[in-house]
Simulated assay, not measured.
Amino acid sequence: MRPLLFASRMAFICNILFLLCLVIQRTHDFLPNKEISALVLLLGWMVAPVQNMVANFWYGLVLLSKSTIRIPNWIAIFNVVILLIQFFVYFILPS
């Protein structure tokens, strides 16, 4: 279960950066350093949805196999909630 813990933590970090991207989108020049801003945008907009879907799909497989999951529940819940927000932002808001 160590790879699932790593995937969950990486999804958590990317999801925090996704939320930071939403703040940057609203305030525009939130980060003065362009390199850091580019890294945040790359990890927040591009990597976060993919990593989050991988982690949540893995959660589903673990739940279907009825094995024990050894990650903190708050990380799993946070990742699921952010995945729902990402679906809303990417698929419902653009139209």
Rank of each mutant, 00 (worst) to 15 (best):
residue 1 M to H: 12
residue 1 M to W: 12
residue 2 R to P: 04
residue 4 L to S: 06
residue 5 L to M: 12
residue 6 F to L: 15
residue 7 A to Q: 06
residue 7 A to C: 10
residue 8 S to W: 02
residue 8 S to F: 03
residue 10 M to I: 15
residue 10 M to G: 02
residue 10 M to H: 11
residue 10 M to D: 11
residue 11 A to T: 05
residue 11 A to E: 03
residue 12 F to P: 00
residue 14 C to Y: 13
residue 14 C to G: 00
residue 14 C to K: 00
residue 14 C to W: 01
residue 15 N to G: 07
residue 15 N to S: 13
residue 16 I to Q: 02
residue 18 F to Q: 03
residue 19 L to A: 15
residue 19 L to E: 07
residue 20 L to M: 13
residue 21 C to P: 00
residue 22 L to S: 09
residue 22 L to G: 14
residue 22 L to P: 00
residue 25 Q to Y: 09
residue 26 R to T: 13
residue 27 T to I: 13
residue 27 T to F: 12
residue 27 T to Y: 14
residue 28 H to C: 10
residue 28 H to T: 15
residue 29 D to K: 15
residue 30 F to N: 08
residue 31 L to P: 02
residue 32 P to M: 01
residue 33 N to G: 01
residue 34 K to V: 05
residue 35 E to Q: 08
residue 35 E to V: 08
residue 36 I to W: 15
residue 37 S to D: 15
residue 38 A to T: 15
residue 38 A to M: 14
residue 40 V to C: 08
residue 41 L to G: 13
residue 41 L to H: 14
residue 41 L to R: 15
residue 41 L to V: 08
residue 42 L to G: 10
residue 42 L to D: 09
residue 44 G to F: 02
residue 45 W to L: 11
residue 45 W to F: 11
residue 45 W to P: 00
residue 45 W to T: 06
residue 45 W to V: 07
residue 45 W to M: 09
residue 46 M to G: 03
residue 47 V to A: 11
residue 47 V to K: 00
residue 47 V to C: 08
residue 48 A to P: 00
residue 48 A to K: 01
residue 48 A to F: 03
residue 48 A to M: 02
residue 49 P to M: 04
residue 51 Q to V: 14
residue 52 N to L: 06
residue 53 M to G: 05
residue 54 V to Y: 06
residue 54 V to H: 02
residue 56 N to A: 07
residue 56 N to Y: 02
residue 56 N to W: 04
residue 59 Y to N: 04
residue 59 Y to S: 07
residue 60 G to M: 14
residue 61 L to M: 13
residue 61 L to V: 10
residue 62 V to I: 10
residue 62 V to L: 14
residue 63 L to G: 04
residue 64 L to R: 10
residue 64 L to I: 10
residue 65 S to W: 03
residue 65 S to R: 13
residue 66 K to M: 05
residue 67 S to F: 06
residue 68 T to S: 10
residue 68 T to R: 14
residue 68 T to L: 08
residue 70 R to E: 09
residue 70 R to Y: 13
residue 71 I to M: 04
residue 71 I to G: 00
residue 72 P to S: 06
residue 72 P to N: 11
residue 72 P to F: 03
residue 73 N to E: 07
residue 73 N to L: 12
residue 75 I to W: 07
residue 77 I to P: 00
residue 77 I to M: 09
residue 77 I to C: 05
residue 78 F to Q: 04
residue 78 F to A: 08
residue 79 N to V: 00
residue 82 I to A: 01
residue 82 I to S: 00
residue 83 L to M: 12
residue 83 L to K: 00
residue 84 L to C: 10
residue 84 L to N: 05
residue 85 I to R: 01
residue 85 I to T: 09
residue 86 Q to K: 03
residue 87 F to Y: 12
residue 87 F to P: 02
residue 87 F to S: 05
residue 88 F to L: 11
residue 90 Y to N: 14
residue 91 F to R: 10
residue 91 F to L: 13
residue 91 F to K: 09
residue 92 I to L: 12
residue 93 L to Q: 07
